[in-house]
Amino acid sequence: MTAHGPVAGPEAAGGAPPVLTVDALSKTYPLPGGGRLTAADAIGFTVPRGGSLGIVGESGSGKTTVARMLVGLVRPDAGTVTVDGRARPARPARGRAARLARAREIQMVFQDPYVSLDPRLTGRQCLLTALRLHGASGAAAEEKAERLLGQVGLGSREGAARPHALSGGQRQRLAIARALAVEPRVLVLDEAVAALDVSIQAQILQLLGEVRRETGVALVFVSHDLAVVRHITEATLVMRRGTVVEQGPTRSVLAAPVTPYTRALLAAVPRPGWDPAAALRAAAPDTP
């Protein structure tokens, strides 16, 4: 299974066991007119402890399908997801203890926190619900909720507010705090900063960097934005039509892309002196 793994961070080569190992993960969906759409075809990668992997690609490339399979929201047709050496069963966990143990392995942060947060719960209640579900109680739970709020930069006013009274950035901070409440090994973020204003996006990126340093949680960062991925990940996986077309250290994938598809994606990113027509000509050989 290591044959699929990109070198995600300097530790991977040193032999430290990866926290997340994904092997030959596949998913197809039936198409209306017969035939099947391959959303993910034998996807494999590893993420070292505390590492950060980016999955990039265009709409329909299958990157969200992979993220949802990691968390267990989509059941893969084939392949395995292993966290800390334990394979995650493809079927939904049976029994409370198994479900909770599963939740402590991987947590997810979604693009739109307004949809992913319960509108009836205040920020503090949202965190307490997650904490109590996982066995914390009383003063210990309250104290931990406060610490989580502080960790993501939310004050007591925000902790007492319901999601509708929070800004987009504050909601995303709360969603990150809720995901961190169970102390997961891996945090999967699916376009988690895509809907935010650029100044807020930068704040969340900075927060994620701090969270990684403080907790050692590994990140799987799904994004269409190559520039964001450059800032938050060490390894990158480029997906197209359900397959991995390129993977490796983020720096070399972005600085010296091997495949025409990655080159086309990079050429399409606006920069000083950029011309869309030239970007399209550069992309012409192998893009749809």
Partner: peptide, 14 residues
């Protein structure tokens, strides 16, 4: 704004 975010290479806790 203490600390840029780009320092991801040393960010891994190992």
């Amino acid at each position: 704004a203490p600390g840029p975010v780009s320092g991801t290479t040393e960010g891994g806790a190992g």
